[in-house]
């Protein structure tokens, strides 16, 4: 009934009741972070035990939609912290001018690269990879893939984080040859989906040999479903790296809590939670290491990365090439 009432009123009377005496920390993140199966609920409970505050997650689509939302809201935003942008979005996020410096005491990150940015705090990371079922012999690189008749499912770079990752993966690995690679791939691509979920769903239904996902995807099947029938294909040109980041909002009315939360994100508690809920690598390896099963994952020899500031220009070029190659 509450929803009918709020429907009629069309005003915010139904806003959740909050204990007035405790400060509220508003954290914006992408939707799957806050879902029942994401890390959100556990992080909320753990942080509220120590902070004497009310941590309120707002889940908003995916990483890019999250940024759009913060951009639309501008300085009036309720958000104190934004969790879940990534290295590909950092330049745009910085340009929006809404974030402030993170006050961390030089943490020791376990990342495949040196982290120097002092606004955006990395909290987990992973490599993009093509995932396949056991029994399928994957190609060793994009050239082999293009020449093979293996079928792949990919995501649209304009609407999906992994899709954009793949676009930049091919571009960083092949530079000016990227258009030729895409032309070669065009007959391998079964379809281009809007987001990761659709592509992965189609893959599980048997629509293609491989799907673009993460090197850590097989760990989910192994640990959560006890199914060892999935693997990621190691590509010898290296794998594109995605680092997920959080940042404190400059206009926050809870700057101290916001900084506390950023530090908390790097704690053992959160870091070990992220591994088995977000299915990514921790930014700082927790004391008891990675869970059993992660040792079976492939570890790329080469991490392909771009300077976040170069991403927007690179994306524009790569997207035009991608569109031209696949529009034939």
């Amino acid at each position: 009934m509450r929803y009918t009432v709020s429907m009629l009123a069309l005003v915010g009377l139904a806003a959740p009741a909050i204990a007035q005496d405790r400060p509220v920390l508003d954290v914006y993140t992408y939707d799957s972070f806050t879902s029942e199966w994401g890390p959100g609920p556990a992080i909320e409970a753990a942080f509220e035990e120590t902070c004497d505050c009310d941590l309120r997650f707002t889940g908003l689509g995916d990483a890019a939609e999250l940024l759009s939302r913060v951009q639309i809201e501008g300085p009036r935003t309720e958000a104190d912290v934004v969790v879940g942008l990534d290295t590909n979005l950092m330049a745009k996020a910085r340009e929006a001018g809404l974030f402030t410096t993170a006050e961390l005491t030089s943490p020791e990150f376990d990342l495949p690269l040196d982290w120097t940015d002092d606004t955006f705090v990395p909290f987990d990371w992973g490599y993009f990879a093509f995932v396949h079922r056991e029994g399928f012999t994957p190609p060793a690189n994009f050239r082999e893939l293009a020449e093979s008749d293996a079928s792949i499912l990919i995501q649209d770079p304009r609407s999906s984080t992994p899709g954009l990752g793949l676009l930049l993966w091919v571009k960083t690995a092949y530079g000016d040859e990227a258009p030729a690679i895409w032309e070669g791939l065009s007959d391998n691509i079964v379809t281009v989906t809007q987001g990761w979920s659709e592509a992965y769903g189609l893959f599980l239904e048997g629509e293609a040999d491989m799907v673009l996902s993460y090197t850590t995807s097989p760990a989910y099947h192994l640990i959560a479903e006890e199914d060892s029938g999935f693997a990621a294909a190691p590509f010898d040109e290296g794998h594109y790296l995605q680092i997920e980041v959080a940042a404190a909002v400059a206009s926050s009315d809870q700057p101290r809590l916001a900084q506390d939360f950023l530090r908390f994100l790097l704690s053992d508690t959160v870091q070990s939670t992220l591994v088995t809920t977000n299915w990514m690598y921790p930014a700082i390896l927790p004391g008891d290491g990675l869970p059993d099963g992660f040792e079976t994952l492939i570890t790329p020899d080469r991490a392909l990365t771009l300077d976040p500031e170069d991403v927007p220009a690179m994306t524009e070029t790569a997207l035009a090439e991608w569109r031209a190659a696949l529009a034939r």
Binding site: D156, T191, T193, W322, A327
Partner: peptide, 8 residues
């Protein structure tokens, strides 16, 4: 998007 097979 899903059935179209690409940016076409």
């Amino acid at each position: 998007l899903t059935l179209g097979g690409g940016p076409r």
